[in-house]
Design a protein around this nucleic acid. Structure first.
Lengths: 194, 194
DNA sequence: GATAAATATTGACCGTGGTCATATTTAACA
DNA sequence: TGTTAAATATGACCACGGTCAATATTTATC
């Protein structure tokens, strides 16, 4: 994980990731079994855990990669000139994150770096996301009485809330983006009183 | 689960919950094993799953009970007359929710009712919490340009964010209540522009 | 090229959540 | 009270993530 110097190591790792990718793209993230991955990669089970601390670590890596791809796209976009554009830009990422219940749960578990351990791929993307949002909010026509960083973290909080309610039996009649707008309008387009 | 008519059923159920409670109060939620519970209750393993759909369902019940106790307390409190009081009232609940990583993760998983299934105990407490907050926000000195329900859901979203960051290696230098204040001040004490 | 140290791989094994055909108990009715 | 059907309990069994001592391979040193 930290220093894969040997060629063999890199090859094995690639085989594992390849096998995982194959399973994911056909059966989805939630259906991935470690046993299937090692069989697909033609290695022993123990080898898997020599490369990834646990199953979650591989998922963290795979899902983190997907999120990073979205963020790469965000960074090529011009700062949104209004709230609706901001939401529209964000939507594809939110849709990926909610495309499987398994994905969303795993993201929640890994969105904050676990104490004392190193910061994982997904946690890094959350930091990156805040950075992108901070930039957007600084440049766009949004409130300036609150630090853009706080606003960005708030957008993240509301996005998580909307995704959670998306999976909710009683609260999912409203599309995610509409609900997000309901929160973000008062959050981003207000000013402090007095 | 739905219609425990027989006395035996109620007794068995009580034995299971008792055994679970005993384990939880000595070793914590995260250390609970189904095997230990059934042994403590002197029943077979299969019996457990006749009473609870899975381990999470028992946890949902136990943790839901704890949260409900907090909400009972909230309802006896007068509506907070300012932001700091609101946060102070909320804090004990947030502290329980973050007292174990296991608890927080489970709460996140169950805070929205799973699609098509019945609404679980924790999901119900989240609804209840929104109701209490809505009342508080209606009565207190907070912004009135946004429906109190939306404000309440926002408070919940920010609370979740603060709890998540509480477990985060890089973002946990700020106490939960201070961070919450950072979000809630612009959220609750602003007015929409134009 | 021989040998030793470091690194990577193996697969039998384990812990724990969850299943299900079978056995037992309860309730209803004659 | 005896018979029977529904409700409940049982425990052997399975699935799957994860461990670890033993083995194999690579790299370093001479």
């Amino acid at each position: 994980m930290k220093k894969p110097i040997q060629k063999r190591t890199l090859a094995t790792r690639a085989k594992l990731i390849d096998a995982a990718q194959k399973i994911i793209s056909t059966k989805g993230f939630g259906a991935m079994r470690v046993e299937d991955v090692v069989q697909g990669a033609s290695v022993a089970k123990g080898t898997f855990f020599a490369h990834f601390h646990d199953k979650d670590a591989l998922m963290d890596f795979m899902i983190g990669g997907e999120i990073d791809a979205h963020l790469d796209g965000f960074e090529k976009l011009p700062p949104p000139e209004n709230l609706d554009t901001l939401i529209r830009h964000l939507l594809p990422l939110l849709q990926f994150m909610t495309s499987e219940r398994y994905i969303f749960d795993l993201i929640l578990r890994h969105s904050g770096a676990a104490a004392k351990e190193e910061i994982g791929p997904i946690a890094q993307t959350f930091d990156r996301q805040v950075k992108v949002l901070t930039q957007w909010l600084t440049d766009g026509p949004f409130r300036k009485d609150v630090p853009a960083l706080i606003l960005a973290e708030g957008v993240q909080a509301f996005a998580v809330q909307c995704m959670a309610l998306h999976f909710c039996a009683i609260n999912n009649e409203l599309p995610m983006q509409n609900r997000l707008r309901l929160y973000l309008e008062p959050w981003l387009c207000s000013e402090k009183l007095s």
